[in-house]
Design a protein around this nucleic acid. Structure first.
Length: 830
RNA sequence: GCCCUCGUAGCCCAAUUGGCAGAGGCAGCCGACUUAAAAUCGGCGCAGUGCGGGUUCGAGUCCCGCCGGGGGCACCA
């Protein structure tokens, strides 16, 4: 037991006293096979090791720790691991700009972060650490890749991909934000490249539908974002015959009811279809088309995304035949139709689609209304051709032959049935979601375990040759240049084909780092396992994750990919669940003076300085107390100094307790006992509902009540004072582990993290009397002290006789008396 | 434009889920201690819940419409 004879709260001394003890005792180990406690898996999103921990980490880990430490106190064996998401561009950029080795830079940062986490008293199980840049981890990225490849879930294709000209690498759709590279804000361009993909779209329906199972335990915001991102839409595919072409062209529409209103067809300018249709056209058309395609390619993604931009396009001098009425529809090429959605071709119904209307007006194409759409006043809306506003609403069909008079919904059913009967179409579903582009032309990532052989083609590296280790960075040119730096590692690239033994070349791309984080929660189960990615029995014992904690910044990318991996692994028979994260808590961000902290803005608050000035406990409790966890914290609005004073007051309680450990609290002051038990009872529910700020407030109240009992009530020797102070220590163990441990020690115990929750005595929660408010017409006119179990009739009598009621009612007739025993009576007069 | 969220005291936030608008904290003011100050301790709360309707005996809470902040999606046919 460390020496402790301070008489004043000294957080430096307390930290110095307990940090070495915890390093030794490791109170949060979870791997004991003999441990019979029920299990909980609590996971914080693992950090990127780009430097030391900052205020954002401090908030996230403070909140995750409250949950993990709470379940430990409730008697669970809690697995709360941590690791590092340590592949990625920052290490590589540091290597380029400062001439450092990415491996050494990364390991140095990990060591620093780990040390800071220990000081910050994170309740991590240090037996379970991992880092994704180490071969023993990415070995299994490669193993999963080969499994996906076997199943057809990993494939390579040529397509127009998002390209960051600064980072000189491709980007997934999810990494393009508003047309800019998520990482460096450079405008993204398109480039036609041969890239590796995971077939996430195969899982689109399940990724969408299974969100229903999470709707009570995930933030509705995140569920909405995922729904939005997957973007399922239902409609129909319709076949249009093309004059002079053997094969018809399919289009996708959500509005088959407006088929009679189609007045032209548009194909994506950058599609193969457009290029094919223009072949054989006269030279003028072909030239115009080429010029237009060049223009489209040159336009930046930002320009393309602007909805203000006028419509542009080129007439291809080709015609399609409308299957419902045989009309000839001119075919245009435009960039407002996307090549990789639906079939890259649409029927244009300008009367009922704003985009088509804009195009028709720009190109002087006809507009035909086929739906009688009424405004709020019941009058037909103005002709779209005149108003420029498409009639997008519901209505009754007109100008549509047999369909006239049908409602929109009926017309959709009828026309799809008719098309199906004639084999000209069928109902169809489309998704905004695209397949996940996983290859990157950068060094610091997992090599793709494929060998390209002239004789055998694309060959998977066999399991017994994994991992394919990254060659050393030394001697390689890591500067972005559009092709992978691994191409420069000649000895590494040149290999033999695993199938035929002939000379072959390794694939030189590396994987997106989101592959790493898509399954790391499984690796924590058995981080040292060498003959597989994770232990199946451990997965049965621990997984899935009971509580995941992290920033909303990963609401789409990481969570969607991890869900995809989980489902794919489930289908491979490796796990028996389909959703990895049963519950999700998104903590907010820490800001300063109303905006995100940054060095350039000059509003950076350094975590290390806050810890030096106020102590770990005060910073942690400030994070919890600032407000609801999902709200952003403005550091200018909170007061770590006040937190520190609160902790000092709490700590002094322990110093003042004058009874012996183990004294029977039953003989203690009843009023204080009631507060203690009520607080512990409520705190449990509040923690489980993530109401951490309220728990801290309630702990402050308990401290105040205990202080009063010591100074002007039961006195320091009363057993209830000890009971209350021990409860304070246990409550604080969730938020402020150092002071809690010190109090616990002063109180004559050891290891507060396993102290256990107070066994709440229900009888102490029942109050002798409750205050009943008596209203007359909704206004409070009197109060009554009554027994909690008073009958409605008795309470009604008492209320009607109360002086304040008699005065307020006067001569008025009483119409109704609403009795909600024992808390309220409302008397309604005429 | 569509979707999701939030508007309570000068500020950060509570309000047992439809029942007395205030628990906790910041700032401020008053007092104690001090030669004085800092630190510490004690005390002090006249906002009616962004605005307008509605439901109800009763609305911060539920419904409708606005206003304002934050976030997401957005040429996905």
């Amino acid at each position: 037991m460390p020496e402790n004879d301070e008489t004043r709260y000294d957080f430096h001394a307390i930290e110095d006293r307990w940090l070495p003890v915890w390093r030794e005792t490791q109170p949060f180990r979870s791997g004991d096979p003999e441990d019979s406690r029920p299990t909980k898996y609590v996971l914080d999103m693992f950090p990127y090791p780009s430097g030391d921990l900052h205020m954002g980490h401090a908030e996230a880990y403070a909140l995750g720790d409250v949950i993990a430490r709470y379940w430990t106190q409730r008697g669970f064996n809690v697995m709360h691991p941590i690791g590092w998401d340590s592949f990625g561009l920052p290490a590589e950029n540091a290597a380029i700009t400062r001439g450092l080795d990415p491996r050494g830079w990364t390991e140095d940062n990990i060591a620093q972060q780990r040390s800071s986490m220990e000081r910050y008293a994170c309740s991590f199980d240090w037996d379970r650490v991992l880092a994704t840049h180490r071969p023993e981890y990415y070995h299994w990225n490669q193993w999963f890749f080969t499994r996906m490849h076997e199943k057809g879930l990993a494939y390579r294709k040529h397509s127009n991909v998002n390209w960051c000209p600064k980072d000189q690498t491709v980007l997934a759709n999810e990494q393009v934000v508003g047309g800019l590279c998520e990482r460096c804000d450079t405008p993204v361009t398109k480039k036609k490249l041969n890239q590796w993909y995971f077939k996430v779209t195969d899982y689109a329906d399940r990724l969408l539908d299974d969100l229903d199972t999470l709707k009570d335990s995930w933030p509705s915001k995140v569920i909405a974002m995922q729904r939005n991102w997957i973007g399922r839409s239902s409609g129909a595919d319709v076949s249009f015959t093309i004059e002079g072409r053997d094969e018809p062209v399919d289009i996708y529409t959500t509005r088959p009811d407006t088929l009679h209103g189609a007045t032209f067809m548009v194909v994506a300018a950058d599609s193969d279809l457009a290029a094919e249709l223009v072949q054989g056209a006269d030279a003028v058309v072909a030239e115009a088309f080429e010029a237009y395609v060049d223009e489209v390619k040159a336009a930046s993604e930002i320009d393309r995304l602007s909805t203000e931009r006028p419509k542009t396009g080129v007439f291809l001098n080709r015609y399609a035949i409308n299957p419902v009425n045989g009309e000839r529809l001119p075919i245009w090429a435009s960039d407002y139709v996307l090549a990789d959605y639906g079939h890259g071709a649409i029927m244009a119904v300008p009367a009922h689609d704003q985009r088509d209307l804009d195009f028709a007006r720009a190109m002087d194409l006809p507009v035909r209304v086929v739906l009688d759409v009424r405004g709020e006043d019941g009058e037909p809306v103005e002709d779209p051709a005149v108003s420029g506003v498409a009639a997008a609403g519901d209505g009754t069909l007109i100008n549509s032959g047999d369909l006239d008079g049908k409602s929109k919904a009926d017309a959709i059913d009828a026309i799809v049935a008719d098309l199906e009967a004639k084999s000209l179409g069928h109902s169809s579903t489309n998704y905004r979601l695209r397949d996940w582009l996983i290859s990157r032309q950068r060094y610091w990532g997992t090599p793709i375990p494929i060998v390209h052989c002239d004789a055998c083609g694309e060959v998977r590296v066999p399991d017994d040759q994994l991992p394919v280790e990254l060659p050393p960075a030394e001697g390689l040119d890591l500067k972005p240049k559009g092709t992978s730096p691994l191409g420069g590692a000649t000895d590494w690239v040149n290999t033999t084909c695993p199938d035929c033994g002939g000379p072959a070349l390794r694939d030189t791309d590396t994987m997106d780092t989101f592959v790493d984080s898509s399954w790391y929660f499984l690796r924590f189960l058995s981080p040292g396992k060498t003959d597989g990615p994770f232990d199946l029995d451990e997965a049965k014992k621990w997984a899935p994750i009971d509580q995941y904690v992290g920033g909303v910044t990963h609401a789409i990318l990481h969570l969607l990919y991890a869900r995809f991996f989980t489902k794919a692994l489930h289908d491979m028979g490796m796990i028996d669940f389909e959703e990895p994260f049963l519950a999700l808590l998104n903590q907010g961000m820490v800001q300063m003076d109303g905006s995100a902290m940054s060095k350039s803005r000059g509003n950076l608050v350094r975590l290390s300085e806050q810890l030096d000035e106020f102590g770990v406990d005060a910073v942690r409790i400030t994070m919890s107390f600032a407000g609801p966890p999902e709200d952003d914290i403005d550091w200018a609005d909170v007061s770590p100094g006040a937190s520190q004073r609160f902790l000092a007051r709490a700590w002094r309680l322990a110093r003042d307790v004058a009874s012996a450990p183990g004294v029977d609290p039953a003989t203690g002051d009843a009023a204080l006992r009631a507060v203690t038990h009520k607080t512990m009872h409520d705190a449990a529910q509040l923690v489980e509902g993530f109401r951490f700020n309220v728990v801290v407030a309630r702990t402050m109240e308990l401290v105040n009540a205990t202080r009063k009992a010591i100074d002007s009530g039961a006195g320091p020797a009363d057993p209830a004072v000890r009971e209350a102070t021990e409860a304070v220590a246990v409550l604080l163990s969730l938020f402020a582990p150092y002071v809690a441990e010190d109090m616990w020690s002063i109180l004559g115990h050891e290891n507060v993290s396993r102290a256990g929750w107070l066994d709440v005595d229900e009888s102490l929660l029942v109050e002798d009397t409750v205050t009943c408010i008596v209203q007359v017409k909704g206004k409070v006119r009197d109060r009554l002290e009554v027994a909690p179990d008073i009958s409605e009739d008795a309470l009604r009598e008492l209320a009607l006789a109360a002086p304040g009621v008699v005065r307020a009612v006067g001569d008025a007739a009483i119409r109704t008396v609403i009795v909600r025993a024992p808390k309220l009576v409302n008397i309604v007069t005429a």
